[in-house]
């Protein structure tokens, strides 16, 4: 395969939760070493939690019993199961725009076209969320791994909002309920045929990158690298990752611009949902009576959105 003119397409089918992460990390190293730009697809055959590179393990529900895998791309902790069909586009660094936001947008646009091709009226909003109306339909993350740029996303054919809301550490049941309510409002499953999506995405990415799509497999080097990642991703030190800075406030993002925050003051807990800097819902837990500091607490929460 001519690595300068081809888009390698690999359909891994159903894979373990671990492999649904490590396979594309191995591809990123392969592309960095000269393998062609690659579009891959896979569906995990089990439920797990995927946590972003910089996020703290202490953001997860301490009662979580699902496997946790730390990815090398961004974003927060997410629940993954077999109702989510994943795609990954991996290109050499030189093929991606230098501005990070532009790189994500450029590498998500063909996926949005593919969603439309299979009957989903998706758009890419100003915050780079793939949405139908105002509801998020695709979880995505991106990063530079070695000398390649990776954008990962999913076709959500079925979404378990309750399970997704349960994986995060919440400071109270009220906060978790509010997070769940906002997830139900703003995260939408879009059942579509994954095979058709694969065909459409292959066509759209090939057109966008100006490359002819060709079925491919992992290189020997990528297989070796896969072994490395299979070991690394279950290493407790890697999974635990870095500590976080929460400033005493709890924040959980539903989608870009929509989040739930919670903090305490004088024995009261205030939980609020925020939509584009507007406070939409406020719930107060604590003793009866006037809580004069609530305005200040809400202002402090509003000033500290999750990024």
């Amino acid at each position: 395969m001519d690595s300068t003119k081809s888009l390698r397409v690999i359909d891994f089918g159903r894979v373990s939760g671990l492999r649904s992460q490590t396979l594309w990390h191995a591809i990123a190293h392969g592309v960095s070493s000269g393998a062609p730009p690659t579009l891959s697809f896979m569906q995990p055959d089990e439920s797990y939690v995927s946590i972003g590179y910089h996020r703290g393990i202490d953001e997860l529900n301490p009662h979580n019993e699902l496997p946790v895998y730390r990815r090398m791309v961004g974003g927060g902790p997410v629940y993954v199961d077999d109702g989510q069909y994943f795609f990954q586009i991996v290109v050499p660094l030189a093929m991606a725009p230098a501005r990070r936001g532009d790189a994500i947008r450029t590498l998500l646009e063909p996926a949005v076209e593919a969603f439309n091709d299979v009957g989903i009226s998706a758009t890419l909003d100003a915050r780079n969320e793939v949405v139908v109306g105002d509801r998020k339909i695709c979880g995505h993350a991106a990063g530079q791994i070695s000398g390649s740029v990776v954008v990962v996303g999913n076709l959500i054919t079925r979404f378990d909002h309750l399970a997704a809301a349960s994986i995060v550490r919440a400071p109270s049941e009220v906060a978790r309920e509010e997070f769940l309510a906002q997830m139900r409002r703003y995260v939408l499953a879009t059942p579509a045929d994954s095979g058709l999506f694969l065909e459409a995405a292959t066509r759209r990415y090939g057109e966008r990158l100006g490359l002819g799509a060709e079925p491919g497999t992992l290189t020997d080097e990528e297989r070796d690298q896969l072994d490395v990642f299979d070991t690394l991703f279950v290493d407790p030190e890697w999974v635990d990752g870095l500590s976080t800075h929460q400033n005493g406030m709890w924040r959980a993002k539903v989608k870009s611009g929509v989040w739930v925050g919670s903090a305490t003051c004088d024995g009261h807990r205030v939980t609020a949902s925020f939509h584009d800097d507007e406070i939409k819902e406020v719930r107060v837990e604590g003793p009866d009576g006037t809580f004069e500091e609530m305005d200040q607490l809400l202002a402090a929460l509003a000033a500290n959105p999750p990024i």
Binding site: G52, Y53, M72, G74, I104, Q144
Partner: peptide, 11 residues
């Protein structure tokens, strides 16, 4: 080290 902006992690 690394940085993250807009869910994009880079070195």
């Amino acid at each position: 080290g690394s940085l993250e902006a807009e869910k994009y992690v880079g070195p």
